[in-house]
Design a protein around this nucleic acid. Sequence first.
DNA 1: GATGAATGAGTGTTCATTCAT
DNA 2: TATGAATGAACACTCATTCAT
Lengths: 197, 197, 197, 197
Amino acid sequence: MSDTHDKILETALELFSRQGCDAVSIRDICTQVGIKESSVYYHFKNKRAIALELYSQFEARSLELMERLASALESGVRPERSSYLKVCAIYFDNYLCDSFCNRVLRLLSIEQLGDRQARTLYRRWLFDEPLGFQTRVFAALTGRADASYLAVKFYAPIQLYAQRWLLTGTLSEGDKAAFRADANSHIRKFFAELTRR
Amino acid sequence: MSDTHDKILETALELFSRQGCDAVSIRDICTQVGIKESSVYYHFKNKRAIALELYSQFEARSLELMERLASALESGVRPERSSYLKVCAIYFDNYLCDSFCNRVLRLLSIEQLGDRQARTLYRRWLFDEPLGFQTRVFAALTGRADASYLAVKFYAPIQLYAQRWLLTGTLSEGDKAAFRADANSHIRKFFAELTRR
Amino acid sequence: MSDTHDKILETALELFSRQGCDAVSIRDICTQVGIKESSVYYHFKNKRAIALELYSQFEARSLELMERLASALESGVRPERSSYLKVCAIYFDNYLCDSFCNRVLRLLSIEQLGDRQARTLYRRWLFDEPLGFQTRVFAALTGRADASYLAVKFYAPIQLYAQRWLLTGTLSEGDKAAFRADANSHIRKFFAELTRR
Amino acid sequence: MSDTHDKILETALELFSRQGCDAVSIRDICTQVGIKESSVYYHFKNKRAIALELYSQFEARSLELMERLASALESGVRPERSSYLKVCAIYFDNYLCDSFCNRVLRLLSIEQLGDRQARTLYRRWLFDEPLGFQTRVFAALTGRADASYLAVKFYAPIQLYAQRWLLTGTLSEGDKAAFRADANSHIRKFFAELTRR
DNA sequence: GATGAATGAGTGTTCATTCAT
DNA sequence: TATGAATGAACACTCATTCAT
C-alpha cells in the first residue's frame, strides 16, 4: 500500500477513535496528513470506505490473535495460573492494549449504536468470541456443564476493567498498568478459587 | 414545565439515545415534535442545553434510586437471596430497564468518549457508584477485607449482561426478560457460593 | 408567495433557460438574487424543486392557454383567415413569445434529453397538444379525413420558425418580429390554398 | 488515428448525445473505454477538444452528403416522386438515421443553447442547408418565385417528424420505421399536390 | 502510450443559530 | 409562545487538469 494511503488510515483511526466517524471531517484528517481534501478520494472511495478498511484490518488481526491464543493454550493444558497468565498477557498486550486494536475497539463501541456493520463486529469481538473461547477452554479443562457461566465469571471482570481503564479517555501507560494490575489480580484469585474446590 | 418543553426533551432523548447527539439535528427533533426549528430556542438556549437537562434529570433519578436501594436493604440486612433479589429487582426495573434511564445510559455510553461531562456521569453511574454501593454492602455483611473484589465479582457479570441485552439495538420486552434471567441466575449462583463457605 | 421565493424562481428560470439546470449553480442564482446560498434551502427543498415548480407553473399556464384558444375559436367557426390570425396571435404572444413560457420551452428543450419529467412536458406541449388541437379544429371545419395531416402541414412550419427564431440565442424583439412575419405569411398562404379548393 | 483515440471519441459521442457534454465526466468516458483519466490527455488537449473533433468529423460528413445529394439529383431532374424518394432515402439513411450523425445532431440540439460553435452548426445543418438545398431544387424545377416557401412546406414536416421520432429517447428500429413511414407519406402527398396544379 | 498521485476550484446540501415579528 | 426568514460555517464529494514517471 502507498504511504499516503496508510497515513490516511492511521490518522483517521486516531481521530475516529476519539469521537466517532461523524464527528471527524475529511478536512480534519487531511490537515493532519498534510494533503488536500480531494486527494483522499484518490485513495478511498468514501469516508465510509476508510472506516471499512479499518474494520477489515481489525477483523484480520482479531482472527490472527484467536489462532495465536489457541495455539498458546495447547502446550499448557491444565488450568495453571502461570499458563493462563501467559495467555492473558498475549491478549492484553497484543489486543486490548495494542495501539491499533485498542483504537478500533473504541471506535466500534461508538459506531456500534448507529452502524450495523460496526455492531456486528462489536458484539462478536467484545462479547461472543471472548466468551466463546473461554467457555470452550473451561469445558475442556473442567468438564463441568456450567463452563459458560465460568467463562462469564472469568471474563466479565476483565471486560469491566477494560472498559474502566482502556476504553475511556486517552490510553496512557498508567491506565495500562492499572488495568493489568486489576486484571491479573482477578485472574489469580479466580484460579485460586477454582483449584481450591 | 411546559408541554412543548417536555415533548422536546422526550423526543430528543429518544433520538439521541439511538445515534448520539451529533447525529441528531434540531430539524429531526422538531419534525417529530411538530414545531419549527426556531421555536426550540425559546425553550432551550442550545442543542447542548437539551442534553444537559437530560443529564441532570438523570442524575436526580440516580441519586433518588441510591437512597431507595439503601433503605430497601436496611430492613433485610443479611445476605439472603430473596432479600437481594428484591433489591436487584428495583435496580433492574427502575433503572436499567426504565425507559428514561435506559435511554440516558445509552446516550452516555455514546457521548462518553467525546464529552467530558458525559464521561463523568458515565463513569460514576455505570462503574463507581454501583461498585461502591456493592462494596459497602459486602463490607457490612461479611466483614471481609476483599469486599471490593466481591463487589466486582458480583457486579461485573450484571454489567456484562446489561451491555449485552439492554444497551444495544432497541430495548424490547424479550431483551429485558433475557437480561433478568441471566442476571438473576448469576445472583443466585453467586449467593449460593458465598453462603456455602 | 414571498418575494424572495419568486425572485429565486425568476432568476433560476433566466439562467436555466440559457444553459440548462446542471450548468447553473445555486451560487449563480444566489449571487443574482442577492441572498446567501443556504437561504435558497429555506424556500426550496432542492435545486430540482426549483425546476419542478417552474414546470408546474408552466403546465398551469399551458392548460389555461388551451382553454383560451378553444373559446376564442368558438365565436368564429369558419376557417377564415382573420379569425385564425387572431387565434394564432394569442398563441404567439401569450405562449411562444411570452417571456415566461418561452424560457420554460427552451429549458424543456435542453432538459428533455436527460430528464423524464421534462421530456413528458416537452413532447406534450411542443408536439402532441398543438397537433392535437389543430387536428380537432381542422376535423371540425373541413370534415376531411386527413385532418391530422392538415394539422402537420399547418403546424410544422410554425414550429420550424419558432425553433429558428424563438428558441435559440436570446429572445429579441427583432427575432419576435421575424417569427411573426414568417409565421403569419405561412398562415395566410395556407388558408389561401385551403379555401381555393 | 490510434485505437484508443477512436474509442474515446466513440464513447464520448455515445454519452454526450444522451445528456450533453457537461453532464458527462471524463471519468464516465474512461470507465467505459477502460483507461485511466489522465490517459485521455495524451490523446486530447481538453474535454472540449473531444467535442470539437466530433463536430469537425460531423461537418465533413455533412458536406460529403450534400455533394452526394446534389449529384444524385442531377440525373433525375424532374420532380418525380420516385426520384425524390430516392434522394430522401439517402438523406434519411445516411444522415438522420445514421448512428454517428444522429448522435451528433442530438448533441448539437443540446449544446446549441449554451455553445456558440454548436449553435452555428445546429442552425446550419438543421435549418439553413436543408432549406437552402430544397429551395435551390424547387427554384430549378418549378421556376416559381416562392421556391423558398415551397421548401419550408416540404422540409418542415420532415423536421417535425425527425424531432418526434429520431431525436428523443434512444434511436430504435421501430422509431426509424415510424419516421420513414410518416416522412414518405408526407413526401408522396406533397408531390401529388405539387403536380396536380 | 499510459498511469499514479495530487490538486484547486467548485457543487449541492445540512446545520445550529439569530432575530424581528 | 411560536415562526418566517436568513445566514455563516461546515461538509462530503466531484471534476478537469497537471505532471513526473
